[in-house]
Nucleic acid binder design. Structure first.
Lengths: 369, 369
DNA sequence: ATGAAAGCGCTAACAC
DNA sequence: GTGTTAGCGCTTTCAT
């Protein structure tokens, strides 16, 4: 045993081993090497003979040694943690996963982070300040930042990379990713018009996030262009009851639309229920499209056409951009890189006046099995 | 300026200020106090005059000082981070939020953690080992641990508190929470029998988790008791397509059930679709109940009776138990505390042969508005 | 090829 | 009341 090892273990014992877990010094002492060698052996660094390396590994294993993440973080300045900040709607406590979009996006983001060796922490923008300051982040994903988002500004000041889901209004993000919401809406409106709609209504939200704003603007622009009177109802998107009421109101109007596009997830079922109340057949009397990530719409009666924003893709991309920024040495550009991701229109019966010929086999009935 | 301050700032400058951010020493120097005073002032500790306290706060604010979470964690042994481990089903990459149950549970857990000043990290049990060892956790919530779960054993060895969602088979958890799955199933079967069902079928899973096992056993026991031939189809619960097929198969049997309980979320819509294919009216020809947290079943045609496992409640409870264990000084008991949480049966039309009198107003029709 | 020593930035014990 | 000092457990530079 070297003098150093004796010294170290001596110090340990005098402190009456207040920690149960083995530390790097214990491993070094047990293996008869220095802590440097242990560190290098375990991290695959330095130029040690394979013999030493495996010896150290074996001893570490035997002692059940687990390096301290805290110490490593302090020393290297990297925590391996990235934040996911969800803008909470209204005064709701925490609406994460309220919409399937967030749930899917968060899942993909978590998954992508893990693949690259990072863990992901969900931290609502409105969290207690002490929570934010208590967790060491290497960077943050921000969903739909506000125009002059103070939190993004603060993160920027701290020198942390920030990537946003949703084109940022006026804040210093490293990169951003978004759908082309305007195009998506126009595609849907054209699709409905082609299916015979003459008066297309919109179920939209009252909040001012980019998605709602861009989509509504695109709708209004389209109406202006084709000379249709806008027919829409807006409601606070975070309130599911309000959504059902708004759907009902839209179909109760004297100038009732013959097609509706709903911007939020549960609008499809709400509109379907409302249509039933007014004895409107879908798609004969009313064409329906809804923006949603849920596959329940594949088996409603009738199945409802949906627009998917592909949150998995966005979540994955956003995280990878962030980790690139973290690992790439200061790729801070004054003008952030932005990229638009495609959406996917899944056409089902609710938006087609006459069902197209498909290759799908006819529904089985008993006896035909 | 004290000698110490001069010395500190001197050291800083010689290092050519490699960090941009202000440290505690900078604040101390600028405020003309020692770093201890800064620490105490900012953390509300020690016995400082309010004057000093506010002075330090002001200086810290002016300098944009943010304490280093990494250093604090290393020093105090507390990271303020708790893990949420999701058992992934089969070979699927990461099924978190696949079922609304997980999504809801995770949301509630995150929220509860934040309320108590902790952040939550989602870490699948199968994550790369380096991710696990890279994040300093104060404790972990484990969803549905396996019988002799190696991960739980490892966490226990590390001295970390573990609380499980789902009664643990044989592993050392600090506490656990679960629903009374057996009772819930019996309640549903009785409910269906009361509504006139003579042959109740079950849509169940092939995996061996506690939920599936207990529920299926309860069903089989009930059948034995009332003398009904068991009628069930099992499928890998993580595969939505398999669910639709299994639903179809169950209704295609020559000994077709006149009521079905589905253990997993999308079974309701699948069964409804299958019923339509076989021209079965719900609830007249087929009674339906499904275990789900989704409210789409309130507006299907007909609305479907669901069993809610109350994941929000479970998520909240589990996190609070964990944080209690973290903050309470070693409340490790040999026999972990377990508690059963109630489930909620939400009765809708799909499980009632004749609709009960309700106080709900009749659906509005145009003109009545 | 290996080891000694210097901190990372903070908190807490103790001295004044 | 306030300051000095000793580490928390690692990684890394530099010397050998």
């Amino acid at each position: 045993m070297t003098a150093a090892a004796a010294n170290q273990s001596g110090r340990r014992t005098t402190h009456a081993r207040r920690t149960e877990r083995a530390g790097i010094r214990d491993v070094a002492a047990a293996a008869g090497v220095s802590i440097t060698t242990v560190s290098d052996a375990l991290n695959g660094k330095g130029r040690l003979p394979d013999e030493t390396r495996s010896k150290v590994r074996e001893v570490a294993e035997r002692l059940g040694y687990r390096p301290s993440a805290a110490a490593r973080t302090l020393r290297t300045g990297r925590s391996g943690l990235i934040g996911l900040t969800v803008t909470t709607y209204g005064q709701e406590p925490f609406t994460f996963t309220e919409f399937a979009y967030f749930a899917e996006m968060a899942r993909a983001a978590t998954s992508a982070a893990l693949t690259r060796g990072y863990a992901l922490v969900v931290l609502p923008a409105t969290s207690r300040h002490d929570v934010w300051s208590n967790v060491a982040l290497d960077g943050t994903v921000v969903i739909d930042p506000a125009d002059h988002d103070p939190m993004v500004a603060e993160l920027y000041r701290q020198g942390l990379p920030v990537v946003s889901d949703g084109k940022p209004g006026n804040c210093p993000v490293t990169a951003w990713v978004d759908n082309d919401h305007a195009s998506a809406v126009l595609e849907i409106l054209d699709h409905l018009a082609e299916a015979g709609a003459r008066r297309i209504g919109l179920l939209t939200g009252t909040s001012t996030d980019t998605y709602t704003r861009l989509s509504t603007e695109a709708y209004l622009g389209w109406c202006r262009r084709v000379g249709q009177e806008p027919l829409y109802e807006a409601y606070p998107a975070h309130d599911p009851c309000a959504g059902a009421v708004a759907a009902d109101r839209l179909l109760a109007r004297p100038d009732r639309p013959d097609a509706v596009y709903g911007l939020f997830d549960p609008n499809g079922t709400d509109l379907l229920a409302a249509a039933r109340r007014y004895a409107l057949r879908v798609p004969e009397d009313l064409l329906l499209v809804c923006c949603s990530e849920s596959d329940v719409y594949a088996s409603t009666e009738p199945p409802i056409t949906t627009l998917s924003l592909q949150p998995q893709r966005i979540g994955t991309t956003v995280v990878n951009l962030l980790i690139d920024a973290i690992e790439g040495i200061g790729s801070f550009t004054e003008n952030p890189e932005g990229q638009l991701m495609p959406t996917e229109l899944i056409v089902r019966r609710s938006s087609q006046r006459r069902p197209p010929r498909t290759t799908v086999s006819a529904p089985r009935v008993p006896g035909e099995v």
